[in-house]
Simulated scan of single mutants.
Amino acid sequence: MVRIPLTSTERERGRRLGQLLRDARGEESMVEIAARAGLSAETVRKIETGRAPTPSFFTIAALAGALGISLDMINELLAPQSRSA
Rank of each mutant, 00 (worst) to 15 (best):
M1A: 06
M1E: 09
M1V: 03
V2G: 05
I4T: 15
L6Y: 11
R11D: 06
E12P: 03
R13A: 08
G14T: 09
R15T: 07
R16A: 12
G18V: 00
G18I: 02
L20V: 04
R22I: 06
D23R: 15
D23A: 15
D23S: 15
R25T: 01
E27L: 02
M30P: 04
V31M: 07
I33A: 12
A34I: 01
A34S: 11
A34Y: 05
A35L: 11
A35K: 12
R36T: 00
R36V: 00
A37C: 13
L39Q: 07
E42T: 05
E42Y: 03
T43H: 02
V44C: 09
R45V: 00
R45N: 01
I47T: 02
E48W: 03
T49Y: 12
T49D: 13
T49P: 04
T49K: 15
G50S: 10
G50L: 04
A52W: 00
P53S: 04
T54W: 06
P55S: 13
P55L: 09
S56H: 10
F58Y: 11
F58R: 15
T59H: 02
T59F: 00
I60R: 05
A62H: 08
A62L: 11
L67M: 14
L67C: 08
S70C: 07
L71P: 11
D72E: 13
I74T: 01
E76C: 14
L77E: 13
L78D: 09
A79Y: 06
Q81C: 11
S82G: 10
R83H: 08
S84I: 05
S84C: 07
